[in-house]
């Protein structure tokens, strides 16, 4: 555990050691100590604070990934969009995910936040450290498979754990001639959505906006669902933010988005389900496929967690099961004006 606040560190250690499946084998209070400790102790997972004296979490992550690749979870309490965006940069350096700092003992939502933290750490302790998908493995679907005379008007993407980097990779490969609008639900800790949107836009070069209720959906722009509400699309091409009950324990949920896309856009849409734990959106991707939409699931090899796409594959909801580069190539072909 790496954190420059002794109090925060003590709480994290207490929480993790309280779980029989986890054991804290070392702590560090700045990036420099963290790199040394990672080299010496070879932990399964490192939790990393971003703002620390001497060497910050970002630089430490980069050093650790170069010297002794380890699963790193960024832990931050900041919800200032600029700072969240800076934290997401650590993902580019090799960190797996960003989570919010657990709430303090005695806080009403303490139990929930603690469970979330422990679950994420346990889950990530099993994923492979180094993920490379720069080489296309499955060939992108042939032109003929796509050409069925329908006109694509919208791309809907759902993602969870491991999603941010895949989203960045996919969006960054869409050329200026790509004119379709994109709607995205990415599961993310409360308060992080704005910062994430900022980071995603900056790092991919594709315009990303936090969705607003009633806003018209315009071409060549990605709309990211804000946290705490469901995002839907209407037949009139508008975003609708609703506060319906959480689905699969999640709000925003991919399920809600995909359902509305299937209803409003029918066969004129593309559905993409990316890496993530759980089943959110798998059933609804099937719904989209049945409505005539093009559906894609991320392939197992490139997934941090092959949960949601795996479920989609099981339900035969996806036309194609692809690596991120191939997903990008497919979207390019479908969305670029000739």
């Amino acid at each position: 555990m790496v954190d420059d606040s002794p109090s925060a560190l003590e709480l994290l250690v207490y929480l993790l050691n309280g779980d029989p499946e986890l054991q804290v084998i070392g702590t560090a209070s700045n990036g420099e100590e963290a790199v040394k400790a990672a080299r010496r102790l070879k932990p399964d997972v490192i939790t990393m604070d971003i703002h620390m004296p001497l060497v910050d979490g970002f630089a430490a992550t980069r050093s650790i990934m170069e010297e002794c690749p380890t699963r790193i979870v960024m832990v931050t309490a900041s919800v200032v969009p600029r700072e969240v965006s800076a934290t997401f940069k650590a993902l580019e350096a090799g960190a797996l995910t960003v989570i919010g700092r657990p709430l303090g003992l005695g806080h009403p939502d303490f139990d929930t936040s603690m469970r979330e933290l422990l679950q994420t750490i346990k889950l990530l302790s099993e994923v492979s450290v180094v993920r490379r998908w720069s080489h296309a493995r499955n060939h992108p679907p042939l032109e003929s498979a796509l050409a069925s005379g329908r006109q694509i008007r919208l791309v809907a993407i759902g993602a969870s754990t491991g999603g941010p980097l895949v989203l960045r990779d996919v969006l960054s490969q869409l050329p200026a001639t790509f004119t379709l609008p994109i709607v995205i639900v990415q599961h993310i800790a409360a308060g992080f959505a704005a910062g994430f949107a900022e980071w995603l836009g900056q790092s991919s070069g594709f315009p990303v906006r936090l969705a607003e209720h009633g806003a018209p959906i315009l071409g060549r722009c990605a709309y990211l669902a804000p946290d705490g509400v469901h995002m839907e699309v209407t037949a009139g091409g508008q975003v609708r933010l609703t506060s319906g009950p959480a689905e699969h324990g999640l709000r925003p949920s991919v399920a809600c988005l995909f359902r509305s896309v299937a209803q409003a856009y029918g066969g004129n849409a593309v559905g993409v389900l990316l890496t993530g734990m759980g089943k959110d959106g798998a059933q609804e991707l099937k719904l989209m496929r049945n409505a005539g939409a093009v559906t894609i699931a991320q392939d197992e090899e490139s997934c941090v967690v092959f949960g949601m796409p795996g479920e989609a594959v099981k339900l035969e909801a996806a036309h194609f099961v692809l690596a991120p580069d191939d997903i990008a190539a497919t979207l390019r072909r479908l969305g670029t004006q000739p």
Partner: peptide, 8 residues
Amino acid sequence: KGAARAVN
């Protein structure tokens, strides 16, 4: 802030 959060 982080420390204060830890002790609620």
